[in-house]
């Protein structure tokens, strides 16, 4: 099973309570000092961008009413972005469990954007000095004992903050209390090893990832075998090549000794 940060910060979003007022979006932009944004050529239709770290997406319920679902970084227990960053610019804070980004280390390869199964990290495509931008769970504020701006701002408690254990318990309590009102699933409890941002809803939220339903296996595990094979492959290849070279050389030498009248064309020095 995956390893979660004990008492790590977590957010539970109950989409049945969200009325789509976008106070969280505004609060996030204010606290993180994000500039205004307009849809650009490179924007996706989910509202997230380098300047919008959280957004509300609408989905139609079977009865025609809209469901409002808040998108943000999921702060995975075993984040793919952290695992793939070649310079460690993406890090999971060992205290809070927030996935944070250090622009000073970043080389701009955008592998994190490719690897994230939720497609969360966004890029400053219009900047000469571009950085990866995404929700950092207001990590600096968490460390001061404060709470994230988005959960503070929510007027209907549709998105609430606490430790992951508390939030999971609360999610299951709500699912049990009103079983008819929810789909009996906590998104983020097990998918890809679990995330710190959890959702309960009356509609299927699998669409928050790239289309297909996510499995429980954490993504860094998919590269583990291949990465673990690196030292043995290197040593094995070097060993095999040395061995082959030595055997063939020896065989040629034996042949030369037995047939000393012919010269070996391989021993000339043209190169």
């Amino acid at each position: 099973m995956s390893v979660h940060v004990p008492n790590g910060a977590a957010i539970l979003t109950d989409t049945t309570k969200c009325v789509g007022c976008r106070e969280c979006v505004v609060a996030c932009k204010k606290r993180n000092d994000l500039e205004p944004d307009v849809p650009r050529r490179w924007s996706l239709d989910d509202g997230l961008s380098a300047r919008n770290w959280t957004s509300i997406v609408e989905k139609e319920l079977p009865n025609g009413d809209p469901a409002f679902i808040r998108k943000q970084c999921r702060h995975c227990a075993e984040p793919a972005c952290v695992s793939v960053c070649p310079v460690g610019a993406m890090q999971k804070d060992p205290e809070t469990g927030a996935v944070v980004y250090d622009g000073d280390l970043c080389i701009g390869c955008r592998y994190c954007m490719m690897a994230c199964p939720y497609g969360v990290p966004r890029y400053d495509w219009d900047q000469q000095v571009p950085y990866i931008r995404k929700c950092i769970l207001c990590n600096d504020f968490l460390k001061e004992g404060k709470t994230p701006a988005c959960t503070d701002a929510c007027p209907y408690d549709a998105t609430i903050f606490g430790t992951r254990e508390e939030m999971l318990a609360e999610a299951h309590r709500r699912l049990e209390e009103n079983p008819d009102q929810y789909i009996q699933h906590v998104w983020g409890e097990h998918e890809i090893g679990g995330t710190s941002v959890l959702y309960i809803s009356n509609t299927d939220l699998s669409f928050l990832s790239y289309g297909s339903k996510l499995g429980d296996q954490s993504l860094p595990a998919t590269t583990k075998t291949a990465m673990g094979a690196v030292p043995p492959v290197f040593a094995g290849m070097a060993g095999t090549m040395t061995g082959v070279y030595w055997i063939i050389k020896r065989r040629m030498k034996n042949q030369k000794d037995s047939d000393s009248t012919t010269s070996n064309p391989g021993d000339d020095n043209n190169g």
């Binding site: 695992s83 793939v84 960053c85 070649p86 310079v87 460690g88 610019a89 280390l105 080389i107 390869c109 592998y111 860094p220 590269t223 291949a226 990465m227 690196v230």
Partner: peptide, 14 residues
Amino acid sequence: HMIIYWNPHSPLFE
């Protein structure tokens, strides 16, 4: 940065 800031888990690092 790849020379001094290491993340050996990353395939791109390799």
